[in-house]
Simulated assay, not measured.
Amino acid sequence: MLFVLVQFQQYLLRWRAERLLSDIRTIQMGKSTWADAQQLMYRWGKWGRYEGTCAAERCSYQIELDERLSSSLVGCCRKLLVIYYIFGGRDAAVVARFDVIQGQIWAKDFVLVMGVFEGTLPDDDREYMLSGSATTRWRVRDFRWQNPRHPEYVVDRPDACTGGCEEINARYTPFADPVEVNQLMSFSLDCITRLVTCRHREDIMPSVSRQMAEEKLQFDAALKAGYRPYDWCVSDPAFLGRDRANVALARVVAITQNEYEEEGRFDLHLELVSRLKRASFWKEGTVRETNVSRVIVDPVRQGSQPAQLGQTLLLAFETPTMAESRPYLDLTPCDLLLPTPENLTAVKRGIAEDFFPEERLVWP
């Protein structure tokens, strides 16, 4: 009887999780509407919640499914926990989330977390967390790194997650290819009901794990071939205009060699001409300094001549630390473009697409 009860609750959790994943995958970021969000909230209201207000203008809605009976057994009833585990009981939770902004759904997440014991049975063995996540990021600065072959998403695992956990993550922007996003949202939800428990990241998100392994091989091969990070810059001006926190036009007023002269490093002194996006910390007519490797020989990745005194450059960059008081810009060659009419048009199109909040609190 106990075996039937344990199996029933595990299969019920899996059944709900599969339907929740299917619903989240049907969301098309930037196309699904407030009406679509309301249908999901009505369907999952028993397990859903939100903080503050929830309206068409702005709403973050979270749905949580879990089976936490084993957690309550860990402290008080070890023998019952062993029986529960043998009968297929698993400490598992599923969390989904979507964000509505200005009447459209612009973010969707799905996370599977399980408590796994190192040994065959939970008898004096240490438990660790096994998790897989597919989450939206407004901007790629929240990626651990960026692959220019698919700049709108990344697959990775956290370096700090050792010993007490094993994780695998897929992160994507709202503008990632919908087909690719749904491929990234491939979870082995049968982990919830397997009698032989899932133990590793390749068990919980196998397709993402395979892609991560393949990309690591490609990256290692590129390093051996002399890869440099700025060889793989994303050069689409519209992408840069949308993704970067600040965009501005600045004039080169001085070029000086710095202490790393032997490495071909130079300081550019840039006077702000005009702001195109944010950059409120930089006052017009004032000069800021930046140090960029090879910026003289490859300044804007467009086959142009080296940077010249008096030249105006188009900058798309992140906000530097202590921006109000520190007279420096943290630029890389990937942040520089020539202000051609085509580049300016594309950058402004990207700027118009960026109406997201500065921060979005999601799972690691």
Rank of each mutant, 00 (worst) to 15 (best):
I168M: 10
G103F: 05
V100M: 05
K283I: 04
E261M: 00
D220R: 12
V140N: 11
Q9F: 09
R149M: 04
W47S: 14
N182V: 10
M114W: 10
W232P: 06
S235L: 15
Q62E: 14
A250N: 13
E353N: 03
Q257P: 15
T340H: 03
H200T: 15
I255E: 05
W15R: 08
R294L: 11
G310H: 02
D203F: 03
R90P: 11
L272A: 04
P229D: 10
P237A: 12
C59H: 03
P357K: 00
V292L: 05
P357S: 00
P206A: 04
D236V: 10
S72V: 08
Q218W: 15
C334K: 02
S304M: 05
G52S: 04
V94E: 07
G303D: 03
T193Y: 07
R301I: 10
K216A: 14
A316K: 10
S274G: 01
T345K: 01
G30M: 02
R58H: 15
G89T: 03
I296T: 12
R78W: 13
Q211M: 13
P339L: 04
P148G: 09
F98Q: 01
R14G: 14
E271K: 11
R68Y: 12
P339K: 00
L20A: 07
L5K: 03
C161Q: 02
V181E: 09
L112A: 05
F266P: 03
V74L: 12
L313H: 06
Q305F: 12
K79Q: 12
V234E: 11
M1Y: 09
A316Q: 04
T33R: 03
S133C: 07
L315R: 02
R244H: 14
S32D: 06
I83H: 08
P174A: 07
R275T: 03
R288D: 04
R288L: 09
T120H: 11
R171E: 15
Q28R: 14
I101Q: 14
A238F: 08
L12Y: 13
P333I: 02
L73C: 06
R301Q: 15
R288H: 08
Q38G: 04
S186N: 12
L240M: 14
Y260A: 11
P333L: 00
A352H: 02
D354H: 00
Y11F: 15
Q305V: 09
V4S: 15
W363Y: 12
R137S: 13
N246V: 01
L329W: 04
S304G: 14
E342Y: 04
K283G: 07
E57F: 08
L314N: 02
A352Q: 01
E353R: 05
D190Y: 12
Y50A: 10
G163I: 08
R171Y: 15
G45E: 06
E166Q: 14
R278Y: 09
P364C: 02
A107R: 02
W15H: 10
M205S: 00
H200N: 11
A55F: 04
L276C: 06
E215L: 15
A96S: 13
D298G: 12
V196Y: 12
L184Y: 09
H200I: 06
M322K: 11
P320W: 07
G164I: 02
W47H: 10
S235Y: 09
V208I: 15
V154M: 08
L338I: 02
V6A: 09
G241R: 01
F355I: 00
F8G: 05
L2M: 11
